[in-house]
Write a protein that binds this DNA or RNA. Structure first.
Lengths: 225, 225
DNA sequence: CTCATTAAATCATCAGATGACTTTATGAAT
DNA sequence: ATTCATAAAGTCATCTGATGATTTAATGAG
């Protein structure tokens, strides 16, 4: 790391390989040379290469697949949370989101106030529907609404977790917009607010699950096909 | 797709050693057993131990000194993007945990297999009850059980989130041990496994909520007082 | 063309050996 | 007794070679 005076081969190999990755010698998804070739290229043993590759894999740069090869996951120094979330499948991400949304909605129902309901309705109206145009902007408005629901739970830990996922969620939402993944309509969103407004946790729970069900179903079908 | 059963030895070794570190088996500055001893302890080759140690070194947990040994640098996750979550109240943490546990149990019910059920029962038996003695060791066994439930969901994103929380969860579990917070008994734990085994998500959901309810109730009373 | 089988490629893991470096033990000189 | 150079032991660093597990590509029969 910092001791440039003391240099061991594995750290040198880490730096060398990471340097090649960030300079896009191999693009995302591309396969690196096999371990034997890498060891020859860097003039170190295969064991040293393995130590280096494992560190880079733990940092979200690489992914090794037994029997297949070593692949580039990211070419930028992704912070750990993002890279971890990225490694999870799309369905896994939605399921995790579902866990947070459901529980947050339950809590929001218990702790709702008129002010909060008004604010949620305002954000939903601002979100509108996606009718072509700026994808990123719409994703931002959509995410803002969902984050507000989480915030309405009054639970700081959940907000933190959601933020932790937000970046990768935004990416995947944008990637799937207009794809086979169904986008819940305005009514489905409004149902969540209404359910929270009733003050009944069970109603809020059900509303969120109705909201998520079509998405998870589509993802399941996609995996099966 | 059951990527959670497909775990490689090096990652297992990383988890095992990190677990020992965060549970303060060795304090900061202390020396770990040498590589040969560690490989014998974990029943893996020395090369695998070296890969694990190097990853933990790259994450700031360990430092290796040639000719001397391997030493503990930090017993807490230095690169913790969720350290904010630690500032969250005890109740917030439990509520967030509840969100993950409930949804994970639902998914686990849908995806349960006899092998998984057997493993859960084994971990619960290993956990046992806290009857004085080594608190940290009991917390570790308790956490191992709950992490296994999350893993049984087959959802990598949730496992990642739970791992992020693991440190603070362990703290809270230890903090509540012997305090005014009720510790769910063996039966409450077993009920979760049984509910998962039925294959009914609703049953698993209910079992986890019954499990968490007394704790959350106690925390509410504590806040009010 | 389809599909099961085989072969090749690649990572995962292990075992053993040697070198480099640090720490400790040793023992002679003062 | 203290100091200090030297030897010895302990430990990580690295290399070499081999075997198993898994995935992917090639093959060939139908």
């Amino acid at each position: 790391m910092q001791p440039l005076t003391k240099t061991n081969l594995a750290d040198t190999a880490i730096a060398a390989i990471r340097s090649e990755i960030v300079s896009k010698r191999w693009d995302i998804g591309e396969k690196l040379p096999n371990e034997t070739t890498l060891s020859a290229m860097l003039s170190v043993s295969r064991g040293t290469i393995r130590e280096a590759v494992r560190v880079l894999a733990s940092q979200g740069f690489l992914e090794t697949r037994q029997g297949s090869g070593t692949y580039v996951l990211s070419t930028t120094d992704a912070s750990t949370p993002l890279s971890m979330a990225r490694r999870a499948s799309l369905r896994d991400q939605f399921e995790a989101r579902c866990a947070l949304d459901v529980e947050a909605a339950r809590l929001a129902a218990l702790r709702q106030t008129p002010d909060i309901i008004v604010e949620l309705r305002r954000l939903l109206e601002r979100r509108g529907n996606f009718e072509g145009g700026d994808k990123a902007a719409f994703v931002e408005r959509d995410l803002a609404f969902h984050k507000a629901v989480i915030a309405a739970s009054g639970n700081r830990a959940m907000v933190d977790i959601y933020d932790f996922f937000a970046a990768s969620i935004a990416e995947t939402i944008e990637a799937t917009l207009g794809a086979e993944i169904p986008e819940p309509d305005m009514q489905a969103h409004a149902d969540i607010i209404d359910a929270i407004a009733t003050g009944e946790p069970a109603s809020a729970d059900a509303a969120v699950r109705r909201f998520m069900a079509p998405i998870l179903g589509a993802l399941d079908r996609k995996i099966l096909s």
